[in-house]
Design a protein around this nucleic acid. Structure first.
Lengths: 331, 331
DNA sequence: CTGTTTGCTGCACAGCCGTGCAGACCGCGT
DNA sequence: ACGCGGTCTGCACGGCTGTGCAGCAAACAG
């Protein structure tokens, strides 16, 4: 008998099981005296309401899935942490679905969530297959997507386009003419959007942009991309990096392999403002994204969807703020 | 009617509900023909077994709590990710309890886990109060603690003492005499153990050690600690840092504020081998801890505990490996 | 003192599922 | 043809809870 049941508490308190149930149910009608007796008996026996049985009745649990690939890397780590913290504060139970690369694993995890009657799922990254959305839809599973324009779900978007345009503008205003951008081959929607918006804005201003890609969007990719930019062709004097990690890799190559100085020879702007951007070695000018703010929006969308399940899909926007440091001082 | 029940599947398939149940129960006896019919009907209706109800029967769910403060920082981010991945692969449901600093929040989260009849809890960091262990004990909640010598739980320990001793030995063998160590005021057990073991080993070899502390065990603390080491007193020529983040902060201060070179003027060894340690700017010699290996041990302990609940507490050790990079080349 | 309202309480049911048990059915050997 | 063993199947129960409903006592008004 590992767990105490309400029946046993009732017996010890000398009341019916209903009284116990009502004591632990918000807004139920119990006399203060019985309530007291029940609480005392529960304390003595170490009783905890069985949320599973509760969930069976309500046909819903308080689990919220958080889907992320590589949740330990860069900005995503901060977003994951902020989101789980916000969910806990809300009284939900954050389930971190750290899916490997395989689609199969993701679907298995989703089935687990549905099997546990999860309340909702938040998607931080990756590009789930269509079947994922279909399955969620079919089981009335609310979805919140962060950083991706998915029309079938509530979403929180960063102002990627606006920020990237601003990057191009401040580069041009500061007199830079040989522009470049570092993106990624396996571009997530956010990364691709930043790259494209920067290029478009530069073209609109009448300047060409060299484009470099690494395999991914991490430090090593930044290294590879920077090598291709500086090893051949006209060397850029200003580089916009689709995220901070790419920028760090590029900076290290620019300084150590090509002996150039930042920002005198090359200026850089990154994206995300992870804590490393403030480290003395980098001091990277970058667009700040506040993970707590994004998480708060996501939770808000969850609340709203729960109250009005049939409301049309909503979209929240969080606008990144350019933080000036030494890698680009502005004009 | 948001979810399909087994009853409906049974009706469509023309069998009893028991047959449906047995189809989805491992090792139950069903005729291949009925099984087929049931699966087809389930597919058509989009049926998923209600894991909540299943859990009520078994009095256990497949939730596993993962308790961590600041799971986005440094090595802990990698450990969290590795652990959640391993748990998912095992068929468990990782619940990330990202507790703020308050003890109250932690206990609330623990009660949620117990309420959901979680299978076990893994503790990555922080120092839960005694009431935490007591509550877990009382509810038969298996506990795995990582990186902390908690006698009331199964545990996975890194070889902090062995590695730190090795650090002292290789420094001495390479001819360094002015040793220092950077630890932390708010020392987690691991950090404190590394510091103490290094000091003890140095003393044993006949050398004194300067000790510096920041407030925490992050980059900023490394900066502060390095400033106190180099601003006054005899400057060290070899520093052991209790983790990589501290080392990065120290390196940046040593180079940029004091104009010294690494490793010529000062050699450094870190701990953890987070990816940043391999970045060109740092190239930090450090002790590698494999998050996947630690996670695997933790999961193994979980499995073992589940099979033999009354076995004595076990302790697994993972030995860190010294990885040489440029910050200290060895002798 | 009596009638009525109010506030609690207990009963019983519903919500899903796994499983022991008995019975049905089928194949097979004699 | 008959008995027997084995494989499935359905019934019914048990696991723990929330809640509608009816009843009961107390409080209160007249």
């Amino acid at each position: 008998m590992r767990f105490v049941s309400a029946e046993q508490v009732a017996q010890l308190a000398g009341v019916s099981r209903s009284a116990v149930s009502r004591t632990f149910t918000e807004g139920a009608s119990v006399a203060p005296a019985t309530r007291e007796k029940v609480l005392k008996a529960a304390e003595e026996l170490g009783y905890h309401v069985n949320d599973l049985a509760r969930g069976v009745l309500a046909n819903q649990s308080r689990l919220v899935g958080v889907v992320a690939t590589k949740p330990e890397i860069g900005f995503r780590a901060h977003l994951t942490a902020a989101l789980t913290k916000a969910l806990i504060r809300r009284g939900s139970i954050p389930v971190l679905i750290n899916t490997g690369e395989t689609e199969e694993e993701l679907l298995a995890a989703q089935k687990m969530l549905i099997g546990h009657r999860a309340e909702a799922t938040v998607i931080l990254s990756g590009s789930p297959p269509a079947s994922f959305f279909e399955l969620a839809q079919r089981n009335g599973q609310p979805l919140v997507v962060i950083g991706r324009a998915e029309p079938d779900a509530d979403r929180v978007l960063a102002g990627n386009a606006e920020a990237s345009r601003e990057a191009a503008e401040v580069f041009v205003a500061a007199g830079h003419r040989r522009l470049a951008v570092i993106g990624s081959h396996s571009a997530t929607p956010s990364i691709a959007e930043r790259e494209n918006a920067f290029v478009a804005a530069a073209h609109a201003a009448g300047f060409d942009v060299r484009i470099a890609h690494g395999r991914d969007s991490d430090y090593d990719s930044g290294i590879i991309a920077a090598r291709t930019l500086f090893a051949e062709g006209q060397r850029p004097d200003a580089i916009f990096c689709a995220n901070d990690l790419l920028a760090f890799g590029a900076m290290d190559v620019i300084r150590q392999e090509f002996g150039l100085t930042i920002p005198e020879d090359v200026a850089l702007i990154g994206f995300d403002d992870v804590p490393e951007a403030a480290w003395l070695s980098y001091s990277l000018t970058t667009f700040r994204q506040d993970p707590a703010a994004i998480a708060a929006r996501a939770v808000m969308l969850l609340d709203r969807r729960q109250q009005n399940p049939d409301e049309p899909r909503a979209c929240e926007r969080v606008i990144p703020q350019l933080v000036f440091r030494k890698s680009f001082a502005g004009s």
